[in-house]
Design a protein around this nucleic acid. Structure first.
Lengths: 210, 210
DNA sequence: AAATGTGAATTATTTCACAGCC
DNA sequence: GGCTGTGAAATAATTCACATTT
């Protein structure tokens, strides 16, 4: 019952929210939940919850709802939470360092395994248990360590160049924190997190809210 | 020619990208640009660029394209970049501190004016030029300092409680970094930045990409 | 009775395509 | 000829509504 129809990215994102909520529900001893209650907790409609789940199969019981434990297990499987993916951080400036210091990765099924920087002075320094390597080593280190995700935290003008290197090294996913539009070949996933832009959009709301 | 039709949020977000690109184009001495070239630089179609701009008026010249300087000025006005908005940070843990340390806010038209935390040991400490205040002071400090944006970087279980306080204090926008669904009254803008979830979604891609 | 699963309807967003202007 | 502005068409996402199951 894998997705035969294309699944919207927003659905995937919500499934992770459901998964997290289910974890909490289980902790509080709840063994069953309806789509409407689960939706309510996350400010979503019951229909949306059911539709989202419907992309992947049938998990509920008519009249009763969903078994929290079962659904959590099923979602975990679907979303790849039963695996651990290796991650590297590229760029160890302000943001890169903050990412390296973030302790929540293991709970997300991610493991930071390498860090790269162009700044010669930083190389071989140890940051949060990871030794910073030169960017040129990325090409060999990524396949050797079997890293599939790169967190790209370099300045905008370096982003495309580094991306090309990452692609050559065989990276599968890039989470791009630089305010730059990256070009990558088919089959490589780029997720853009442009915090500045998100912040800026608030000012539009403020201008147009009176 | 203000938005008579509802403008998609995605359009607003792209307009900021256009604005930024225009800044760079002007620096390189480009005085005119077509929708297709601007789009190309940002991996967007020419039609999308024109449609986005079309929500707010007509800025181009048939056959010639857009005057970079004029368009930049017009977009800046539309998007509220000619104003400065005051911001507070709530929660001065790992992420909150990183936000306080981020130096790019002024370029975004934002000014960090206050910081709040529940941890008594942190109160009255100075962080990046801002004195940390107790959460209870938020209620009076926000209206007094005319703060309209809150960056919410508290643990998930505190998020709703703090949000209620922020709302009472008259905040207009909340950028929520906690993995929690916030309830706010009509007219208040919440922007959710759930970095964990974004990271998690990559693992779904990896599971389903072979 | 309660709640699922799902086609159909609705709404939102993007792309197409072309008349009109410079 | 090149390029804008914009209705119309296509595509995507969400919501509705209801037949069906327990």
């Amino acid at each position: 019952m894998s997705p035969n129809k294309k699944v919207p990215e927003s659905t995937i994102s919500r499934l992770f929210a459901y998964l997290r909520e289910l974890g909490q529900l289980i902790e509080t001893g709840k063994s069953t939940i309806s789509s409407s209650e689960l939706g309510q907790r996350l400010n979503r409609s019951d229909a949306q919850v059911r539709k989202d789940l419907g992309y992947f199969g049938t998990f509920g019981v008519s009249g009763a709802g969903y078994d929290t434990r079962e659904l959590k297990k099923a979602l975990g499987k679907i979303l790849g939470k039963d695996k651990v993916w290796k991650v590297c951080v590229v760029g160890t400036g302000h943001l890169g360092s903050a990412l390296l210091a973030y302790s929540g990765f293991s709970k997300l099924g991610l493991k930071i395994t390498a860090a790269f920087d162009t700044d010669i002075r930083k190389i071989s320094k140890n940051l949060e248990g990871v030794t910073i390597q030169a960017i040129d080593e990325l090409r060999t280190a990524i396949p050797r360590k079997n890293i599939s995700i790169a967190l790209l935290a370099v300045p905008a003008h370096e982003a495309q160049g580094v991306t090309d290197e990452l692609v050559k090294a065989g990276i599968k996913c890039i989470m791009n924190f630089a305010p730059a539009a990256l070009n990558v070949p088919e089959g490589i996933k780029v997720k853009n997190i442009d915090l500045s832009r998100e912040l800026e959009t608030l000012s539009y709301f403020l201008v147009n809210s009176d």
